[in-house]
């Protein structure tokens, strides 16, 4: 390996009441990489993201976040500390704040001092307003800025959340099925957004939609029953017999998203 990884998960095992959702999983991410995590239902993809963002603590294994000042042991940090250190997470269902306006959602998501005292005295500075305006233009919600986020459509909520993630400026961004439940048109737009996102940071995407994954020429990690099955380009993955057996199945990859 020529380049040092930004995130390294080694032999990660997660158990829920004895059931091993993830077993001895290894995952190395290089800075600036876009990585897709695929696999059938229950393969442990989402659990893996949960481990990286601290929502779930593994029973064994290590997760290190290699930042410039030094490596951080993720498994020992609280969620908000992990988020603050630069790992952002977008959940599967859009989880924006329904009672806040689009603008307010973005305002609190923005990278900033997040202590009570700081937010109590914070005012929206012109530079911050500019950042938010730029983001609104990117996600195409400029006209909805004063609308309560709960009133947005499903696709708009997803974009708002992506916008929030971008303003949070994480070094590593974890996206869980960003195009689930979207129309074709919405999916295309999300794809464009994703291209934008990838240019600046390391991204991990859990995705079922194979057509969507194929749009990106990047590395794919296949998980099965909590273990690493195969890692490689989409072509390598599709030509792998074991992957075809457990995941792509009968359709030979053509309509594999129907499996998920």
């Amino acid at each position: 390996m020529s380049q040092a990884p930004i995130l390294s998960c080694k032999e990660v095992t997660v158990a829920f009441d004895g059931f091993k959702a993830v077993q001895g999983m290894n995952l190395l991410l290089l800075p600036g990489e876009l990585r897709f995590l695929i696999g059938p239902n229950g393969a442990g993809k989402t659990t893996m993201l949960d481990v990286i963002c601290g929502k779930v603590k593994p029973v064994s294994g290590s997760v290190s976040f290699h930042r410039r000042p030094g490596a951080l042991d993720i498994t020992k940090l609280q969620e908000h500390k992990i988020a603050e250190s630069g790992i952002g997470r977008k959940f599967q269902t859009p989880s924006i704040f329904a009672g806040l306006t689009v603008m307010e959602n973005l305002e609190i998501a923005m990278s900033q001092n997040r202590s009570v005292w700081a937010t109590l005295r914070a005012t929206l500075k012109p530079s911050e307003r500019e950042r938010i305006d730029e983001e609104l233009a990117l996600i195409g919600l400029g006209d909805q800025r004063h609308l309560r986020a709960g009133l947005l459509s499903h696709g708009q909520k997803q974009w708002l959340e992506i916008g929030m993630m971008l303003l949070q400026e994480p070094e590593i961004l974890l996206l869980d099925e960003p195009v689930a439940g979207m129309t074709d048109k919405e999916t295309d737009k999300t794809g464009e957004l994703l291209q934008e996102i990838v240019r600046k940071r390391t991204v991990v995407v859990v995705e079922h939609d194979m057509e969507f994954v194929r749009n990106f020429a990047s590395k794919v990690t296949v998980m099965h029953e909590g273990k690493l099955l195969k890692e490689g380009t989409m072509d390598e993955i599709q030509s792998d017999d074991r992957v075809a057996e457990v995941y792509l199945g009968r359709g030979k990859g053509r309509d594999a998203h129907a499996v998920g």
């Binding site: 988020a83 704040f97 009672g99 307010e104 609190i108």
Partner: peptide
């Protein structure tokens, strides 16, 4: 204030606030 917005955000989704880097 922005703190008030964070408070309302905690009401709407405490966990989500945590993953934004705030300690609810």
């Amino acid at each position: 204030s922005r703190m008030g917005k964070v408070l309302r955000a905690i009401r709407d989704g405490e966990n989500r606030v945590r993953f934004l880097g705030y300690n609810p």
